[in-house]
Amino acid sequence: MSRNAIELQGVEKFYGGFHALKRASLSVSLGERVVVCGPSGSGKSTIIRCINRLEKHDGGRIFVGDVELGDDLRNLDAVRREAGMVFQQFNLFPHLTVMENCALPQILSRGTRRKAAEENARAYLDRVHILDQAEKYPGQLSGGQKQRVAIARALCMRPKIMLFDEPTSALDPEMIHEVLDAMTELAEGGMTMMVVTHEMGFARSVADRVVYMEAGEIVETGPPKEMFGNARDPRTQRFMSTIAASA
């Protein structure tokens, strides 16, 4: 067994000449809930996208569970089965019903039988309270409903880790809480979670640890109380006070 669910050691990422991640090191233990925050362009989405290799890292090492991410495609499959991802723009498949969105990926990537896949999908759709919309198409749902379906779809793959890339940033304000509620319920169930978000209320009540990033660097990490109350680094303090002022 590995020590940590996720382990980053001095990870580097470049987009052309732009240095997006600078020697980022971070470990997330099993069952831990980590919220990553920081101004836009700070590398917080990049770090989460490197963890399931939607982006390739250019230096350092990344471990997910026991597996190191590299060019070996078998490892990649293993990692993607471990880590579920929820996107800012939902990325539901618009040509499939809600039920198919949840059932088909299981069939395609795990070889699950259709009946079992649909049963599984029903269970998770019920868990995010959207089972009644199962036969609709994504285009017929509200943003909040879509994001809950996206969460159910990721959960259907039975991941050990859930990655959230700004899951509420594309939502109208009145829909944010339904998504955060679903995420809170998930956290209460013991899921290991890494969440990029600006929702500091969520961070305060759910996170075990808050990671503050700026300009591609992990500036500081600590429990939410410490980070919001008395952060050590002046950059963190400045960001937290602007967030507090706007909230």
Binding site: N91, F93, L108, R110
Partner: peptide
Amino acid sequence: LDDGQIEAAEALGIP
């Protein structure tokens, strides 16, 4: 086609 569709399929491990 939106790139997000391919990313979502990849993240779900679909071959």
